[in-house]
């Protein structure tokens, strides 16, 4: 059973390194873009709220494969900056995941009871103070566990890039098939690889969820 892994070590190693790179870059990108979108959606400016809501509603109802399709096949036709397949994959994952990050963050802000903000304003705290010392610490607690779920989903979603010419973990199965290696055993190793990546994340999620639920 270990043969499959040893004989194809470069394939597995490169695949997973590439998956982790994709994940890390898209995670950072989507957290930033998602937070910006969430800010738009809770802002007092109607135009920004509409724009944010429009983005979220369209992207959330689009299959990720279609987002990839658009960036990998359609985007190059627009004659803009030329990007590598890897970059296009990062962009697709970022654009898609940002919509979910946005909704999580926004819902998190909404979990902070109205009275908290009103009380802090009554105490004479300025807007940044209200935000930094009252709203964010409370919102953060309820946001992190579901945000971890979004990130786990992102990690699994990176495998779609395999269909768009990025050699990551999802591309291992077809490559094994091409080499005539036993695929089921190969898949077992891929699963183990993903478990190694996912389990710490979900363990963290569970701990945080428990600890912070008690604290509230």
């Amino acid at each position: 059973m270990i043969d499959v892994l040893v004989n194809n070590w470069p394939l597995f190693a490169e695949g997973f390194v590439s998956t982790i790179e994709l994940f890390a870059l898209a995670a950072i990108g989507s957290l930033v873009l998602g937070t910006i979108l969430a800010t738009m959606r809770v802002s007092p400016v109607p135009v920004l709220r509409t724009a944010g809501a429009g983005y979220v509603n369209i992207v959330r109802n689009t299959p990720l494969t279609l987002v990839f399709f658009f960036f990998v096949f359609a985007y190059p036709r627009l004659g803009l900056v030329e990007l590598s397949f890897f970059t296009l994959a990062v962009v697709s994952l970022t654009v898609y995941t940002a919509a979910f990050v946005c909704e999580t963050v926004r819902a998190g802000i909404n979990t902070v009871p109205l009275g908290q903000g009103e009380a802090s304003r009554a105490l004479g705290l300025t807007f940044p103070q209200t935000l930094i010392s009252v709203v964010v610490p409370q919102a953060f607690r309820s946001v992190v566990p579901p945000l971890t779920s979004v990130m786990i989903a992102l990690l699994k979603n990176t495998t779609i890039a395999a269909g768009f010419s990025v050699h990551e973990a999802g591309a291992i199965t077809p490559a094994l098939s091409e080499r005539g290696e036993p695929i089921l055993l190969g898949m077992l190793w891929i699963v183990i690889g993903f478990l190694i990546l996912v389990l710490p994340l979900s363990a963290m999620q569970r701990t945080l969820e428990k600890r912070w639920r008690v604290a509230r």
Binding site: F73, P76, R77, E82, F85, G163
Partner: peptide
């Protein structure tokens, strides 16, 4: 997955 996709990428210089 198909030659058509490769040709698309060839035309858009990818």
């Amino acid at each position: 997955q198909g030659y058509q996709q490769c040709v698309d990428q060839l035309l858009s210089k990818q």
